[in-house]
Amino acid sequence: MTATLERPSAPVVSKKRTITPARAALHAFLILTCLMTLAPLLWAVYASLRTYEDTSVNGYFSVAKSLTLANFAKAWEIGDLPHFYLNTFLITVPALVLTLLLSSMVAFGVSRFSFKLNLVLLMIFTAGNLLPQQVIVTPLWRLYRLIEVPEWISASGSLIDSQLGVILIHIAFQSGFCTFVLSNYMKTIPYELTEAARVDGASVFRQYWQLTLPLCRPVLAALATLEFTWIYNDFLWALVLIQDGDKMPVTSALQNLKGTFFTDNNLIAAGSLLVALPTLVVFFVLQRQFVGGLTLGSTKG
């Protein structure tokens, strides 16, 4: 499983390669496929750069009269995007950090120690991650209403309508996947390492925090990238758990742009792209981690 991460990022290019017709055909096919894959996004970019006056008269399938970034500025302002980005990050970052922290603790426990419920625990976490989210919505909402929290955390006095509530359900749900992946990874760490530390008198917590976690950095990085995308893209939890429009994360706030009273598809396209921007940036910057994360759960065994 670790192999995927440590593998050189690009195959070594051999110099003696010659272009054969088969290769050319392969490239042509791949280029075409890539273009088709990117087409919807490019189309959205094209639409976002045009004005409402232009497209309402000429239709979308026409040569643009002029290209402008005005839609982006307008979406940014009308959608109050900075505010909603902040909301999203207030949810995403704590949820991400705590998910990784909690699941690494469980993974450490189940992979480095043997106890009665070892496997059961791991199975519960893994299965929990695979449940359809809708299954738990109603009881969760009721449960949240019963749990009292101080008002400085949530103005409602309960977990309803609070960012904490959304963070908690992300942690609970996502820790399943992370525990599974991390425990697989930790099993590959030679146990002599922790044994040596133990002989030196290191506590369990030290073995976890100072020994195991640093070794897990590649997998933590991969999971962080992946979880960032997943939590960022969440649509359902905020829809169900948040009541205050001002607390909505940016993906749900996108609906505001698609208001019931004026539809401007160019504006929506610009807004959509702006909302997608953070995940696209993360994707481009941390591409290797992202790929690593996706393949982590799969290539073991």
């Binding site: 749990i147 929290v149 101080p150 008002e151 908690l168």
Partner: peptide, 18 residues
């Protein structure tokens, strides 16, 4: 908070918070 044992929290919520 999650376990609902935040007694202080519960009180604060009743008192309207600070």
């Amino acid at each position: 908070a999650g376990a609902g044992v935040a007694a202080t929290g519960g009180l604060a919520a009743c008192g309207g918070g600070s």
